[in-house]
Nucleic acid binder design. Sequence first.
DNA 1: TAGATTGTTAATCGATTAACAATC
DNA 2: TAGATTGTTAATCGATTAACAATC
Lengths: 221, 221
Amino acid sequence: MTEERKISMAVIRRLPRYYRYLGELLDNGVTKISSRELSEKMKVTASQIRQDLNNFGGFGQQGYGYNVEYLHKEIAKILGLDKTHTMIIVGVGNLGQALANYPSFSKRGFNLIGLFDINPRLIGMSMRGIEVMDIDKMEDFVKTNKVDIAILTMPKTRVKETAENLAKWGVKGLWNFSPVDLFLPEHVHVENVHLSHSLMTLAYKINEAEELDNGNDYKPF
Amino acid sequence: MTEERKISMAVIRRLPRYYRYLGELLDNGVTKISSRELSEKMKVTASQIRQDLNNFGGFGQQGYGYNVEYLHKEIAKILGLDKTHTMIIVGVGNLGQALANYPSFSKRGFNLIGLFDINPRLIGMSMRGIEVMDIDKMEDFVKTNKVDIAILTMPKTRVKETAENLAKWGVKGLWNFSPVDLFLPEHVHVENVHLSHSLMTLAYKINEAEELDNGNDYKPF
DNA sequence: TAGATTGTTAATCGATTAACAATC
DNA sequence: TAGATTGTTAATCGATTAACAATC
């Protein structure tokens, strides 16, 4: 029995950035890089980069550094980008349409195979060669097609119920854009994009900086 | 001289969730709540809630708990939601339009005052009562209007230069939706929304779960 | 007053950084 | 071989959780 090394999400969330940066190096014809060089360009410590990578194996070579192409590929494997994933979008409003038109997803093996909405004016329309279907047809669709990921870009009132149904029908991942917390069985993975939270965080940063400029600490009373 | 209590971003990023949840309680007519009750509903520890809040002051009352309305308002103040913020959107493609139509921003005091694009087919169009302007007019606009936040939803090739210009022209916060790292003077605050990173993280979770199901650890060789 | 729950200090846990032996 | 840089252990730092005295 191999030992369980539970890797923290803090590590995982840094990998896409490494991956992106290595992709840029690759495009620029760079073949090798050391953790120190990488750390300087990415403004993290070299130690962190080496620790992060060594959670998954020794990808470098002492005295040399890392082969860019190899490391790039290995990170892809860790993240599961060497596999293809099927996706549906539930709620084809502005945001849903924006995501449907995102070209870089399919490049990374995320293939959109279905669009669903409740709005009769949208049903039957075609985007990226995919017809928008009535949400009533979703259960059938999900059960007959293998759907890995459902993108939830619908009004928040219907998200909880929809998420629970999708989980029941075998969808493994939910990419949730609603300001709603989903508590689902642990075999269903949820990734939240809380845009309003992100904006509030930005407001905090701006606000805090101004208060410090004015020489004021935050005073509750 | 008041002491410097540098509050970590980990704490700040939890506040919007508390804020949202308290708002829901408020809508449901709940007037008081204890840290324990809150912790059970939000699936965090009561200790963490109390520690987080006590970074900013004592908002509760021993033996009673927290007044929902008061705490909700105080968190708003901490995040700077008691002030209004002006925003412009730079790049009115699918995602920019989606954000322009997001109703909840203005509810929280984030007011959209300008839309900019490079595409002649979009320039002159009107969204939410705001005309899309040529990006050439942006410098003038930013310098004559007080712009707090610029939402960057443009192609990544032009983001770096645009961000540097906006910083120079006095914009305090950038909400960056491009897969680009911005290194700017520290008085300019950047909040990144890296959708592709988020999706890759979801792919990892799905993938990892399957490998564990199959009894496989990740094997690099 | 007795019971409840905060505010806050102390203990624990986990993540990051530093250091260096291994090795290419 | 000498120099460089990894992989990995040890030290530090920070964040979370536990405990409890203060107090409403």
